[in-house]
Structure formats: C-alpha cells, structure tokens
Design a binder for these strands. Structure first.
Lengths: 238, 238
DNA sequence: TAGGTATTCAATCAAATGATGGAGCAAAAC
DNA sequence: GTTTTGCTCCATCATTTGATTGAATACCTA
C-alpha cells in the first residue's frame, strides 16, 4: 500500500525483496560505481531485465537501498534508546556500544553504505539522503548533549558523529583491519567493543571536577528530567 | 633514477606530475570505479592517450597515486613525531591533532583515499597496499602503547587506528558534515580539532588512579626512557 | 477453461569506458 | 642539417555497462 519498498520488505521471499537484499550487500561492498546491475542480477540468479522490471534503473535501486538502510538503522537506534533510557551515561554507552556493534556486525552493509555516502562522491547525483542529521540530533538529545533534538549545537552533533563513525569504521573496515591484526571474528568484535569503550567512555564520563573549557555543556544529566514518553530516537520508527 | 613516481615528484611542472596530482584528487573524490581516465585527462587538459603514455593503464596510475599518498602521509607523521617527541602524552595529542588536521585539511585526498581503501572493494584487485600497519605500529610505539613498533598488540593498534580514523573521518566527510552543521570552513576545522581533543585526550590521559582493567598498558611514560635517535615514525621517510 | 495479468528471460542497443596505433611535431643529439 | 628521441593528439577498437523490447511462461481470476 505504501511505497514499493514497503511491499518488498513485507515478503522477504519475493523477487523484489531478494534483489533489494543482494543490492544492499553489493552496493555496500563496491560502492555505487563499483557495482554493476549484472553483478547483482547474477548473485540473485536472474536476468538484468528482471531487475530493471522490479526496481527501475540503477539509481532507483540505489535509492531504495539507501532508504532501506535508513529504516533499519533508525529502528535499531530506537530499540537501543528504549533499552538504555534512564541509565547513567556510562551505562548508556556501555550497553549501546555492545548492542550497536552486535547489530552492525550482523549487517555490515549498513556501515559500509553510510560511510561510503560520507566519503565518496557519485558521478550522477542520487538525491536520496541518509537521515544522519535527525539520528544524530536525537542521540545528542538522549545523551544530554542538547536540550532540543531539532537544534543541537554543531559541537554536540560532532560528538555524536564521532561515536557513530567510530562504530562504523571498525565494522566497515573489518576486511582490512582484521587480517592486519590477525584476529578471528569473535575476538575482533570483542576487541572493537573494548577499544570503543576505552576511547569513548572517558570523554563523556568522569568530566566532573575537571571543568575543562570544552567540556560537554549540560552533560551531567544522568537521571531525572525526562519526559513521559521515551525519547524519540528515530523519526520514522513505527 | 628511482621509480617513475620519484621522477614525477621531482618536477611538479612535468606532465607526469600534473597528471598524478589531478589523479590523486579525482580518485580520492570518486573512488577507483567512479573515476574515469577521461575525467582525469580532461581536468589536466590533455588527451587520454597522453595519460596512458605516461602512466600505463588505470591500475598503474592508481597504484602510483596510492604510493604517492603513502609517501606524503609517512613524511608528515615523521615530522609531527619529531615535533612532539618527548612531550607529555596530553601535549603530544594536542599538538599532533592540531598539526595533522591542518595538514590533512590541506590534502583531503589523503584521507579520502585511505578511507576508501579501508571501506570499499575494487572489482579488479589492485595489489599496492597502504602502509597503515607500519605507521600504526610506529605511532603505538611512540605513544608508549607498545614496546616494539614491529609487534604492537592488537589492542594498541586499534587504539591508534581509532585516532587516525577519527581524524580522517572529519576531513573526508567535510562535504557531507559541514553543510549539515552549517559552519564555514574555518569554524569547521576548529570544531573538528576541539571535538577530537574532547574525545581522544581523556581516553589516553588521566587514566591514573582509575586502573581500569583495559587501561593502556605501559602508558605512563611521559618523559625519560627514550632512545638517542628520534623514534622512527615513517619507515620510508628519507 | 478462457482471458487476462504479472513475471521472466534471450536478444539487442546505445553510450561509456579502457586502451592502442600511428601521424604530427618540437626539442635534443649527432 | 639531418637524424633521433620524446611527447601529444586524432581516430579508432573492443569491452563493459545501463537499459529496452518482445516473446515466452507462469499465475491468477472469473
């Protein structure tokens, strides 16, 4: 009833959904220009014309993939926010990192696509955008870095983006980093979580007493002062 | 006398050097598959056959670009290490972040190419690799995270990579982040530096007294205990 | 079952892309 | 002054790639 993307997500067995799933993975691995429609079609086991029949041209398919990824990421962020809501900042970060990393390592295309979008241009512009601003604003609000999720300060946004980028980096870079470190997957994931906690937690926790000039404003809001309904983390989460 | 790349670097006016410079930028912006030899040739103002005459095929040119970037990055890391050598860890980080960010913002293709290499595959494999392992090992050694630059622990490597990635992210993502934050370039760069310091410094400094189980091993080596010659940061730096 | 609709694929196109050959030409070498 | 060498471009190829057409097939509905 809604968008074609919604329909595809309904039934994961449908051809449309199968194409989308493969496209997600391959676009994530090779980027927009590095991916050919033939690669996707071959992986699904169909002809390219079938792909075009379902999804239009390459740009349309890519846009659908981006929206799909946005959707999933938003939902997961919303779930995590519900879990950690009310905890202390340290606990928030600990749990969020554990959960988000498990999730992202299960869906590495998400990190791949998000990072590729940040760092690489596309010759023919694709107009669909990631919802990073909304997500980041909501997280900033939830972390007590901003009063209003719609108007976070640039500094607050950048702190949030540092967190998200740090996560995405190790997921998306696994193929490069893991052989370099000579770790198996399980140990790599564990090491990533520990490293992220090592880096991130001291920045946001135990800022008391130091009062550095660039300390997070309005940061020490560990408990109370929360509204009735849970903080909206993802704008489109159902 | 040495490699063709060396010769090209000698005289920046030479056609070969001009092509390399443009190729660096465009490969960095669009990635390997997103870049066409025609784009590069057009930007330089020459015919594609001239490009091929000087650099062979597309893969060869890309490899030359990667080596060139490796070279520059290594040299800069070496310079920075010389400057901060002997300082306290906090001072090290402060100065390194300032310098490295100024440098990378002046040469964003470096960050672009490094990150694209981490996060994206290429259909036809290009065999030249970035020297991330060596660089990271040297930095880990210089930061007191590892005794031996040749055998840093995975954890030490990941901490170093977190630092480098955090830097590259904001440089390479400028086109995406800056409009989102609505900052002019100067303020963006300042905000990036502050954010990086906010995130990174507490993780490595002021770990005293806490004694967390995952605190950096052999970290508190602020002064003395340094060898005669300056720590080798870049293996190939002249 | 008849008629229609939705789906799939083989064949094919046009454009983009990587790459080359050879002519022209200027500077250097002799 | 002639020859050689190095450099550049025009014209052209072969392949890849995005995309379409129309025939065949499956599925669905009345």
């Amino acid at each position: 009833m809604k968008s074609p993307l919604e329909k595809a997500r309904k039934n994961p067995e449908s051809m449309k959904a199968r194409i989308l799933a493969v496209a997600r993975r391959i676009f994530g691995e090779y980027g927009f220009h590095g991916t050919t429609t033939r690669m996707i079609a071959k992986e699904v086991g169909i002809d390219i014309s079938t792909l075009h029949y379902h999804w239009g041209d390459k740009n349309d398919l890519y846009e659908a993939v981006v929206m799909d990824v946005n959707n999933d990421l938003g939902k997961e962020l919303f779930k995590v926010e519900k879990i950690v809501h009310g905890s202390s900042l340290e606990e928030r970060l600990n749990v969020s990192i554990d959960r988000m990393m498990d999730y992202l390592f299960d869906h590495p295309e998400i990190s791949n696509l998000v990072l590729l979008r940040y760092f690489s241009k596309t010759r023919n512009e694709v107009d669909v955008d990631f919802k990073v601003p909304e997500f980041s604003g909501d997280i900033a609000r939830a972390m007590g870095l901003a009063k209003d999720a719609k108007n976070p300060s640039p500094r607050a946004m950048m702190k949030v983006m540092s967190i998200m980028n740090g996560m995405h980096n190790f997921v998306s870079g696994e193929n490069f980093f893991r052989p370099m470190l000579n770790l198996d997957r399980k140990n790599y994931i564990r090491a990533v979580k520990e490293t992220l906690k090592f880096i991130l937690i001291p920045a946001f926790v135990s800022r008391e007493g130091k009062t550095k000039k660039d300390a997070a404003p309005g940061l020490s809001v560990p408990k109370k002062k929360r509204s009735a309904r849970p903080t909206q983390t993802a704008g489109t989460a159902e």
